[in-house]
Simulated assay, not measured.
Amino acid sequence: MIFLDKNTKCLVQGITGKQGSFHTEQMLNYDTCIEAGVTPGKGGQDFLGVPIFNSIGEAVEETDVNSSIIFVPAKFAKDAAFESIRYLDMVIIISEHIPVHDSMDIMAYANQMDTTVIGPNTPGVISPGVGKLGIMPTHIFDEGNVGVISRSGTLTYEIASELTRAGIGQSTCVGIGGDPVIGTNYIDVLKRFEADDDTEAIVLIGEIGGNAEEKAAEFIKDEMTKPVVSYIAGRTAPPGKRMGHAGAIIQGNSGTVASKTEALNNAGVEVAKMPSEVVKLLKKEI
């Protein structure tokens, strides 16, 4: 498993909000180690036995937290992320619609502090049997040895569900986020899966826009020894029109399904034409 293990002790920023409280309960039900919550002005209270603090500084003094998951509105997300990055090893930003310049500032500070950031606009991370830091529905995942990386939450769910129904469990599923500026990218996750004893094969789920999948293909070709299969969404998307995610827009001849598929094929990665084909391609590799 990667990112999430028995040593991951998390706090929830925005734990008393509608999204924060709902998903905190779901994460606790999945045996995730949530040691604290942070909501300014609500310090001294608790939520389902989780103590709430006014600041991350206070939470760090009183608990062993080393990670955070952020459920705050976009306009407050930069300040929340900076506070987490200052104190913690890993920050998962669920929040959507964060301005690009704010995301750029967040990533620059994370690089400076050597903090892992996943997101923004991510469904999070799940390691079946260990826990989840995110918003994904847990019943569709099962323990196993296939790692999943995706820019899309819903496609993660669809393909993980297909894998589980086919008896193929997952080691860790990571949503890297669909925004143009994100913290952890495909290559960062591929490196971790390559080094992970619990992962034997990888599913890379991509979409139109940008060149992240092409860069990942180069890395796979040069560095990966474990088999990778892929699915790229957006086969029928018209150029210049944003599809779903802020980063999913074709500009010129780059960022198309065809260009990404060609790059992955050249790296020895088979690309499914439909999500339902991923299982068939994976079974040829494992």
Rank of each mutant, 00 (worst) to 15 (best):
R86H: 15
V12P: 06
A246I: 03
A258S: 14
G268M: 12
V229G: 09
P99M: 02
P238T: 12
M113W: 01
D142F: 13
I70H: 01
E158N: 10
I135N: 01
V257P: 10
K132H: 09
F71I: 01
I176D: 05
D188N: 13
G206H: 01
Y157T: 11
K226E: 07
T32N: 01
L11Y: 08
R86G: 00
F22D: 05
I286H: 12
H101V: 13
N185C: 06
V279L: 07
G177R: 09
A272R: 11
E285Y: 12
N29L: 14
G119P: 04
G20Q: 03
V125K: 02
P128D: 05
S254C: 11
Y87K: 05
I208K: 00
F76L: 13
Q13C: 08
S150I: 00
N111R: 15
E96C: 00
P275G: 08
E158V: 03
G43P: 08
M1N: 13
I220K: 07
S127K: 10
D89N: 14
G124M: 00
A195Q: 14
I202C: 00
E200Y: 09
K283V: 11
V174K: 06
A110W: 03
G167Q: 10
K280F: 15
K221V: 05
P239D: 09
P275T: 08
V279M: 07
K221I: 10
T116H: 07
K273S: 14
C10M: 14
F76K: 13
S254A: 13
F3R: 06
D102A: 11
E200I: 10
G37T: 11
A81L: 02
L163S: 07
L48T: 12
I202D: 00
K241G: 01
L190W: 01
G206F: 02
E207R: 07
N211K: 15
A217K: 08
P73V: 04
C173R: 08
T122C: 15
E58I: 03
N54I: 09
I232A: 10
T24P: 06
R165C: 08
G43S: 09
S55V: 05
I135V: 15
I56Q: 04
A237Y: 06
E285C: 13
T8D: 04
V278D: 10
I220E: 00
V130Q: 13
V72D: 03
E83W: 01
E61A: 14
V148F: 11
I85D: 02
